[in-house]
Measured scan of single mutants.
Amino acid sequence: RDLEAFAERFKQRRIKLGVTQADVGSALANLKIPGVGSLSQSTICRFESLTLSHNNMIALKPILQAWLEEAE
C-alpha cells in the first residue's frame, strides 16, 4: 500500500540523512505548517512502524513528506 511504502521510504531517507526520530519531530515546528507544531519521537516511531491508526497515518503523511522534501 502507498502509506506502507511511504513509511518505509521515509525511514530509510531519515536514517541516510543521519536524523533521529526526535530531530524530525522538533524540526516539524520549523516548517511553520498551519496547525502543526512539533511531534513526539514516539509518534514518528509509530508512523515508521505502521502502528498508528490509518487516519493518523493519512494525516501525518503530507506533513512528513514536507519535512523530507525540506531535508533533502
Results as ranks from 00 to 15, higher is better:
53 S>K: 02
68 L>N: 08
43 T>G: 01
31 L>Y: 14
15 I>M: 15
48 E>C: 00
24 V>T: 00
56 N>L: 15
60 L>R: 03
13 R>C: 04
37 G>D: 08
23 D>M: 09
54 H>N: 10
4 E>L: 09
36 V>G: 08
61 K>D: 00
22 A>I: 05
12 Q>C: 01
31 L>E: 10
31 L>V: 11
58 I>T: 08
42 S>Q: 11
69 E>Q: 13
23 D>V: 05
18 G>I: 01
3 L>N: 05
35 G>K: 05
39 L>K: 10
51 T>A: 12
18 G>M: 02
44 I>R: 00
58 I>W: 09
15 I>R: 07
31 L>D: 04
12 Q>Y: 04
17 L>M: 13
5 A>N: 15
11 K>Q: 06
9 R>L: 15
71 A>D: 03
15 I>Q: 12
27 A>N: 06
20 T>K: 09
54 H>Q: 14
16 K>A: 13
45 C>N: 15
63 I>Q: 04
45 C>Q: 15
20 T>F: 00
29 A>N: 10
42 S>M: 04
40 S>W: 01
43 T>H: 07
8 E>N: 14
69 E>T: 10
18 G>T: 00
50 L>A: 13
65 Q>K: 11
16 K>Q: 13
45 C>S: 14
56 N>T: 13
56 N>H: 15
41 Q>H: 15
59 A>Y: 13
58 I>Q: 14
35 G>T: 06
38 S>E: 10
24 V>S: 01
5 A>T: 08
7 A>M: 02
17 L>Q: 04
68 L>F: 08
69 E>I: 07
48 E>Q: 01
52 L>P: 01
11 K>A: 06
72 E>T: 04
60 L>W: 02
58 I>H: 08
12 Q>D: 10
25 G>A: 13
32 K>L: 07
12 Q>R: 12
9 R>T: 14
11 K>H: 01
53 S>V: 04
62 P>Y: 01
71 A>L: 05
3 L>W: 07
42 S>L: 09
71 A>P: 02
8 E>F: 06
51 T>W: 01
61 K>W: 10
52 L>G: 02
64 L>E: 02
43 T>L: 12
69 E>W: 07
26 S>I: 07
60 L>M: 12
55 N>R: 12
16 K>I: 13
12 Q>E: 13
24 V>M: 09
72 E>H: 05
48 E>G: 03
34 P>K: 13
38 S>C: 11
37 G>F: 05
34 P>Q: 07
42 S>T: 12
65 Q>S: 13
64 L>H: 02
4 E>D: 07
2 D>W: 09
59 A>C: 05
8 E>Q: 11
52 L>W: 00
38 S>L: 12
30 N>A: 10
10 F>L: 00
17 L>T: 07
45 C>I: 07
67 W>S: 03
17 L>Y: 01
51 T>S: 14
27 A>R: 09
41 Q>R: 12
10 F>Q: 01
16 K>T: 13
11 K>I: 08
9 R>N: 13
4 E>T: 13
22 A>C: 02
17 L>H: 00
4 E>R: 10
30 N>R: 09
68 L>R: 01
63 I>G: 05
66 A>E: 13
24 V>I: 10
38 S>H: 15
40 S>E: 09
25 G>H: 11
51 T>M: 15
23 D>Q: 14
72 E>I: 02
58 I>G: 07
69 E>N: 08
31 L>F: 13
63 I>C: 08
37 G>E: 08
39 L>A: 05
60 L>C: 10
16 K>L: 12
16 K>R: 13
18 G>F: 01
18 G>S: 03
43 T>P: 02
19 V>Q: 13
14 R>W: 00
62 P>K: 02
71 A>H: 08
36 V>W: 09
49 S>W: 04
57 M>G: 05
26 S>C: 13
37 G>W: 02
49 S>N: 12
19 V>Y: 15
2 D>G: 08
46 R>K: 14
22 A>G: 12
7 A>V: 15
20 T>N: 03
27 A>S: 10
33 I>F: 08
12 Q>P: 00
27 A>H: 09
64 L>F: 05
10 F>Y: 05
46 R>C: 12
19 V>G: 00
25 G>E: 15
55 N>Y: 02
49 S>D: 11
5 A>C: 06
41 Q>T: 15
22 A>L: 08
36 V>D: 07
15 I>K: 14
53 S>Q: 11
10 F>P: 00
54 H>I: 12
29 A>C: 10
34 P>N: 04
21 Q>Y: 09
28 L>D: 03
43 T>I: 15
1 R>V: 11
71 A>K: 10
25 G>K: 07
26 S>F: 12
52 L>D: 04
65 Q>H: 06
55 N>Q: 15
33 I>S: 07
10 F>V: 03
27 A>V: 07
69 E>S: 11
55 N>E: 09
12 Q>A: 14
50 L>T: 10
21 Q>A: 12
20 T>Y: 00
58 I>C: 05
15 I>L: 11
35 G>Y: 02
19 V>E: 04
55 N>K: 13
12 Q>G: 05
53 S>P: 15
40 S>G: 14
32 K>N: 15
64 L>I: 05
34 P>Y: 04
59 A>Q: 14
38 S>F: 10
29 A>R: 13
50 L>I: 06
65 Q>P: 04
21 Q>L: 13
18 G>R: 05
40 S>C: 10
44 I>F: 00
32 K>Y: 14
50 L>Y: 04
34 P>A: 07
58 I>K: 14
46 R>L: 08
17 L>D: 02
70 E>G: 06
16 K>V: 10
61 K>G: 04
17 L>W: 03
28 L>Q: 00
68 L>Y: 05
70 E>H: 03
25 G>L: 12
56 N>Y: 07
43 T>F: 07
13 R>Q: 10
2 D>E: 11
15 I>C: 05
66 A>R: 13
36 V>R: 03
7 A>P: 02
68 L>P: 03
55 N>P: 12
37 G>C: 10
58 I>E: 07
29 A>T: 11
36 V>M: 08
37 G>A: 11
20 T>S: 12
25 G>I: 10
36 V>F: 09
29 A>V: 08
66 A>L: 07
12 Q>T: 14
35 G>R: 09
21 Q>I: 15
70 E>Y: 13
12 Q>S: 09
20 T>H: 02
3 L>E: 03
11 K>V: 07
3 L>K: 00
52 L>M: 06
43 T>M: 12
59 A>H: 07
17 L>E: 03
8 E>C: 06
9 R>S: 14
18 G>K: 04
65 Q>N: 06
11 K>W: 02
33 I>V: 14
33 I>C: 05
24 V>R: 02
54 H>G: 06
4 E>N: 09
32 K>V: 13
71 A>I: 11
40 S>N: 11
51 T>E: 12
25 G>T: 15
63 I>N: 03
22 A>K: 11
19 V>M: 14
41 Q>W: 12
20 T>Q: 03
21 Q>G: 08
72 E>Y: 08
59 A>I: 14
51 T>N: 04
45 C>M: 07
14 R>F: 00
39 L>G: 04
72 E>A: 03
8 E>I: 13
5 A>F: 14
34 P>L: 07
15 I>P: 03
22 A>S: 11
2 D>K: 00
